[in-house]
Design a protein around this nucleic acid. Structure first.
Ligand code: ZN
Ligand code: ZN
Ligand code: ZN
Ligand code: ZN
Lengths: 146, 146
DNA sequence: TGCATTAATAGAAATGGTTTCTATTTACAT
DNA sequence: ATGTAAATAGAAACCATTTCTATTAATGCA
């Protein structure tokens, strides 16, 4: 697995630094999306000296390289998530517990085709994200009202 | 048209103030999305005293009330757009000239159904937006390279 | 293995879009 | 007209994110 990350980083022409690998490990071991500061707090448990700007920079680089994915949160702050699913897909994110679940169903290909045909524009990127409350949080909420 | 905005505001239990109406007029007369500060600059042409926080507050209230729509921009800053299309739809936004075009084709209903069935979660909101370069900007770009 | 090159980093500082706060004014129901 | 609750101006604060610079570390090659 370490080898895998190294390969990925090299493909992106990013140097394989201990902190870069640690950031990836932190995200990989989380089932929820994290803010840069949260990643930083976890990182500080392993490194005595580590700057918050380093975390911001690394997260952005890794997101640019499609190694991790960025969450589009209603509060407009930055959150990142490591997703094992290598194919194009989108996410259902829980606004309460931050769980991320894959939406393998992507109807974007058809949409993109129509945008190109009907609007004659060039598609640079698209955002499709479903925000809500996950199964577990719904259950929790139900109990508290019981 | 003035009457229309008044009705809309009253339904939302928002008082009909001159500045609120002016903000709506400004957005309605624009074919591109605007930042709060840009709305403010235009507003200052009509009112000698007007605060930027007023603009922020009004835009947010109007967006909450579905009178205007918020743009999810890659730079994570706030932009708003007044859309005449009353039915549920999404937008193609030009990252260059800020033009907004409707995508009447919404395949969200099916997606939502699947999210509910397969993930057993509650959908609170969804974001679907296509970012790119519009027909006009593509043409402009092509000419500059010619 | 040593060296040159270039990227990565720490830490401090700045940034600036956005929000908060409070006194004052305004809309509007009665 | 009058009372009340909402809306506002202006100043100030906020704080997540970015910039800056000197230092350190990774990497490719001799
Ligand atoms: Zn949840
Ligand atoms: Zn995923
Ligand atoms: Zn354009
Ligand atoms: Zn529209």
């Amino acid at each position: 697995m370490l080898r895998d990350f190294q390969t990925v980083l090299k493909k992106l022409h990013l140097k394989v630094t201990p902190k870069r690998l640690a950031i990836l490990e932190i995200l990989k071991n989380e089932s929820v999306y994290l803010s840069p500061e949260e990643v930083w707090r976890k990182l500080r448990k392993q490194f005595s000296r580590v700057g918050l700007p380093t975390v911001y920079r690394n997260l952005e680089e890794l997101a640019q390289g499609d190694v991790i994915s960025k969450v589009t949160h209603p509060n407009r702050q930055l959150y990142y998530y490591f997703c094992l699913n290598p194919s194009h897909h989108h996410h259902f994110i829980c606004l309460s517990c931050r769980t991320v679940e894959d939406i393998d169903f992507c109807m974007f290909r058809e949409l993109e085709k129509r945008v190109k045909q009907e609007l004659k524009g060039r598609v640079v990127s698209h955002i499709l994200q479903v925000n809500g409350l996950c199964k577990k949080c719904l259950k929790k909420d139900g109990e508290s009202h019981a």
